[in-house]
């Protein structure tokens, strides 16, 4: 199966919030509209000037959250969605610290809190369905399809209409995502993270982790060498002392 993605064309969003409602219904969340992402609102439409910007998990190609999660509860699936296995999560919230888009939310008020974020309706996709938000969109502002096709479509729109900002948000950010945005207003003005790193964040830690075997091997050899020298010196000192004095003070010697 080809990896899927969502394309949000901000120029076509009318702010009807059908996507929010559909999402809440699909995930069994309380139906009240909320102003920002929360543990009970996995996608929201924010108004910026006269524009409407939908927020949701960006489903990064190489997600920082998935690399950060110590128990592997978060996973990038081949189909595109970044999914969350609540059964593994132990609530460390490192994913929230790691996410460059500040997307994951936490159920702060619960006694057994879990992480909440958009899962691109992975369950519906597996059954050949569409993400609930895309299906509900009446204007076609949210599209769903193969990632490559959507990128091509976005490029086509930018080329055909000079009104668009000449950038597909999500094509390069943090090494690429599976949610793209097109806009006719600069992205910084719409509350998008101004300059996210244009390479995958997990590589930052991968390099450090790759050093582990070397550090362990070199470190322990070095330490053992030092210990050997120390021990040898002590032996020599002891032997010398033994020659000089009576051999009664040698009980400290290690076998």
């Amino acid at each position: 199966m080809k990896t899927k993605a969502i394309l949000v064309d901000i120029t076509q969003c009318v702010g009807c919030r059908s996507c929010e409602q559909a999402c809440k219904e699909a995930h069994g969340l309380p139906p009240e509209n909320e102003p920002v992402l929360s543990a009970t609102a996995l996608t929201v439409v924010e108004q910026r000037g006269d524009k409407f910007v939908r927020r949701m998990c960006m489903h990064c190609q190489d997600p920082a959250c998935a690399s950060a999660c110590p128990v592997g509860a978060l996973k990038k699936t081949a189909a595109g969605p970044v999914t969350y296995d609540a059964g593994k999560c132990m609530g460390c919230r490192y994913c929230m610290l790691a996410c460059p888009f500040q997307v994951p939310r936490y159920e702060w008020t619960k006694l057994a809190p879990y992480v909440k974020k958009c899962d691109m309706c992975a369950g519906r996709l597996a059954n050949g369905g569409l993400p609930a938000c895309v299906q509900a969109c009446p204007t076609g502002a949210s599209l769903f399809g193969d990632r490559d096709d959507l990128l091509a479509e976005a490029e086509k729109r930018i080329l055909e209409n000079p009104a668009y900002v000449r950038h597909i948000y999500g094509s390069e950010e943090v090494g690429g995502t599976s949610v793209f945005f097109l806009s006719d207003v600069p992205f910084e003005k719409l509350g998008f993270v101004a300059a996210p790193i244009n390479r995958s964040l997990p590589t930052l830690t991968a390099n450090a982790l790759a050093d582990v075997p070397t550090v362990v091997l070199l470190g322990s050899s070095l330490l053992f060498g030092l210990y050997w020298i120390t021990d040898r010196r002590k032996q020599v000192a002891l032997d010398e002392a033994k020659e000089k004095f009576s051999p009664s003070h040698t009980d400290e010697k290690r076998s």
């Binding site: 690399s67 950060a68 110590p70 592997g72 490192y94 830690t205």
Partner: peptide, 8 residues
Amino acid sequence: MWNRHSVL
């Protein structure tokens, strides 16, 4: 439950 890519 292992994730060898995780610093944590």
